[in-house]
Write a protein that binds this DNA or RNA. Structure first.
Lengths: 96, 96
DNA sequence: ATAAATCAGTTTATATTATAAACCAATTTA
DNA sequence: TAAATTGGTTTATAATATAAACTGATTTAT
């Protein structure tokens, strides 16, 4: 009846992050911050969790002299996201 | 970009409960328990929260001698659910 | 009749989570 | 060189989810 919702993805901010990453080559910290409107601290924590799960890769580098944190979704991340989308649909459809 | 997710509905069990109630006249406690596979305690707590928000009505009565707790979604509940469905879609769609 | 088991839930304790506030190191601007 | 800003991270707190323990009534077994 109801599929299980991956708890790592069933979180407003983490889902937003993944939603951004799924449709973009690469997104940096500030881009995610702007798009989600979340605080930096919150984003930092959630990126770390998604990274620990292997759903994204965090690439730290420099843009000129300033630090820059960029993220890319991994194939595991893409798969997990797709699975989550299927799962949540089982809750949204109105059953006959 | 991302619509806010009503935190009362963005919960696996509460969403499942609402998903059941949206497609059925009335559902009793044990029916919900069976469909969700959740523990009674958990269901009790979540029904209470949804009820407190006015999203469902809890009707306590008897079936023969045994107590029976039935639930019906309210129109506020229906609206909130519909809104949640729209909101979560904003996270699931792949943006061009 | 009464003890044991079951039913239909509720209460509460615990563990997990989400979140923002506080912080830090480097860079830029005044 | 002092103050402000940038780009984050750490950590403290509040909120949440969940199951375990409990309650009170009913049924079943002895």
């Amino acid at each position: 009846m109801f599929k299980e919702l991956n708890p790592l993805l069933h979180s407003e901010l983490r889902l937003a992050i993944m939603s951004i990453l799924i449709s973009v080559e690469e997104a940096d910290f500030l881009f995610i911050k702007e798009k989600t409107g979340a605080t930096g601290g919150n984003i930092s924590v959630q990126l770390e969790k998604l990274s620990a799960a292997g759903y994204l890769k965090i690439e730290k580098g420099f843009l000129g002299k300033r630090t820059r944190t960029a993220c890319r979704i991994t194939s595991e991340g893409t798969d997990a996201f797709a699975e989550y989308v299927e799962a949540i649909k089982s809750y949204l459809e109105k059953k006959a």
